[in-house]
Simulated assay, not measured.
Amino acid sequence: MVARYKHQLGTVLPAVLRKDPDRWLMAAENAVRKNPDLLAVVKADQGASLMRALVDCARLGHEPGSKDFYLIKRGNAISGEESYRGIIRRVLNSGFYRSVVARTVFANDTYSFDPVTDIVPNHVPAEGDRGKPVSAYAFAIHWDGTPSTVTEATPERIASAKAKSFGHDKPSSPWQNPTGVMFRKTAIKELEPFVHVAPEPQPRRDLGGLEAAAARALPADYDIVDDDVLDITEDQIAEAGELE
């Protein structure tokens, strides 16, 4: 079935993957064959849901079944789901940004953010016990040091994402991780619609025209902690609970 649609999938793949479509198709086939649940769905629906998932995967420039794009059984169909790692890859691929920053806000932190007047959130981590994670925010940093739009994973958005996660209330769930890793991942997913993205690596691009005129630099005393910088090329992303 995958081989039958080789040409159609090849036309959707970005140039960097189109050079070796057979490798990409083999990854797709292997991802299904090693998972009995996926294979059962393919047999039941003649591969219809798998093809939809693979087209999305190809369009985004990911390899199916990788840490960037998962093939998951949802009900009676196969769902293709881009991971937060895949989102960051596409943000950095755009060539506009040098890094992506995501931070968790805890109950005892001092935090405020007005998108009309603030360039980035006013966030001061509490000393000692910071309490439980309550929200998160994320933004990308351009090459000149100016930030992109800041997106917030508010407590309401966190609650919604958590409710959709199977077993989120179990002690083993990454949602119970005291570092708030799932909160940061939610903020990254919120960021994607507000930044440049690309399915394959682009040359470095600097802001120009109206974008450059509107950009405002980070405050001089703004401290970016290494642990807050998410860069897939440096393997700095926590892998806990990716599928949640």
Rank of each mutant, 00 (worst) to 15 (best):
R74I: 13
G75T: 08
S79G: 03
S79D: 11
S83V: 06
Y84G: 00
I87D: 01
I87P: 00
I87A: 11
R90A: 07
N93R: 06
S94H: 07
G95S: 13
G95A: 09
G95T: 11
Y97I: 09
R98P: 05
S99N: 13
V100L: 11
V100G: 02
R103P: 04
T104K: 10
V105D: 04
V105Y: 04
V105T: 10
F106Q: 05
A107E: 15
N108F: 11
N108W: 05
Y111F: 12
Y111L: 09
S112I: 07
F113V: 08
D114F: 15
V116S: 15
V120T: 11
P121T: 08
N122C: 13
N122E: 15
P125M: 10
G128V: 12
G128C: 09
D129W: 01
R130G: 14
R130S: 15
G131S: 05
G131T: 10
P133V: 14
A136P: 01
F139I: 07
A140S: 08
I141L: 13
H142Y: 11
G145P: 03
P147M: 03
P147I: 03
S148G: 10
T154H: 06
R157L: 13
I158T: 03
K162A: 03
K164H: 14
S165A: 08
S165E: 00
G167M: 03
H168N: 13
D169I: 08
P171V: 01
S172M: 10
P174H: 04
P174L: 04
Q176V: 02
N177G: 03
N177L: 04
P178C: 08
P178K: 03
T179H: 05
T179C: 06
V181N: 05
K185V: 08
A187Q: 02
K189G: 13
E190N: 02
V195G: 05
A198T: 10
E200L: 09
P201K: 04
P203H: 01
P203S: 09
P203M: 02
R204S: 11
R205Q: 15
R205A: 15
D206I: 14
G208E: 14
A212W: 03
A212T: 02
A214V: 13
R216G: 05
P219D: 07
